[in-house]
Measured scan of single mutants.
Amino acid sequence: PAHPYDRLKTTSTDPVSDIDVTRREAYLSSEEFKEKFGMTKEAFYKLPKWKQNKFKMAVQLF
């Protein structure tokens, strides 16, 4: 299930529990994912792991 970005980011005051914290981005809706990352999930997962992590750090999901 998708969760709002505000509850997934590492600085959230009301974090979602029971998620894989190493894959926070996977819980974003497709729309919100595209808004935050500027690309689709499919394109994101084709990137090298280090680049994925760099993007995730930039949007507080790492």
Rank of each mutant, 00 (worst) to 15 (best):
D20K: 04
E32M: 07
L47D: 00
Y5S: 07
P1G: 13
V59R: 06
L8C: 14
K36N: 02
L47S: 01
P4W: 08
E31C: 10
F44S: 00
S17R: 13
Q52D: 00
P1H: 13
V21C: 12
L28Q: 01
A58P: 00
H3N: 05
F44T: 00
A58G: 05
M57Q: 11
T13R: 11
D18W: 04
T13Y: 07
F33I: 01
F55H: 11
E25A: 06
K41V: 05
G38L: 09
M57F: 07
F62L: 15
P48L: 00
F37K: 00
K9H: 08
H3E: 06
Q60A: 12
Y45I: 02
G38N: 10
K46E: 10
K49F: 10
V16I: 11
R7K: 11
T13L: 14
F55C: 14
V16L: 09
T13S: 11
K46A: 13
K46V: 10
A26K: 08
E42A: 12
H3F: 15
R7G: 07
V16Y: 06
K49E: 08
M39W: 02
K9Q: 11
V59N: 10
A58F: 09
P1Y: 13
K36C: 13
L28V: 02
K56D: 01
A43V: 12
A2P: 13
F55S: 05
Q52E: 00
P48V: 01
E35M: 11
T40Y: 03
E35L: 12
T10M: 07
H3D: 04
T22R: 09
L47G: 00
R24E: 02
K51R: 13
T11I: 04
K41D: 02
R23E: 04
K36S: 02
L28M: 07
L61Y: 06
K49D: 06
L8V: 08
S30Y: 12
K34G: 11
K56P: 04
D20H: 05
Q60E: 14
V59H: 09
L28Y: 04
K41R: 11
G38W: 07
E32P: 01
P1V: 14
D14Q: 06
Y27L: 05
V16E: 04
R23D: 04
T40W: 04
E32A: 05
R7N: 07
P48Q: 01
P48T: 03
P15H: 06
S30K: 12
S17T: 15
P1A: 11
D20Q: 02
R7C: 14
D14T: 06
R23A: 04
T10F: 07
S29N: 10
K54L: 14
K49C: 14
K54S: 13
A58W: 13
K46R: 14
Y45K: 02
S17Y: 15
W50R: 03
K54T: 08
A2H: 15
F62D: 15
F33S: 01
K36A: 09
G38T: 03
E42S: 11
M57D: 07
S30M: 14
S29Y: 03
G38P: 01
K46Q: 12
D18N: 13
S17H: 14
K34C: 15
Y5D: 05
F37Q: 00
M39V: 03
R7W: 08
K34A: 14
E42N: 15
R7S: 10
L28P: 03
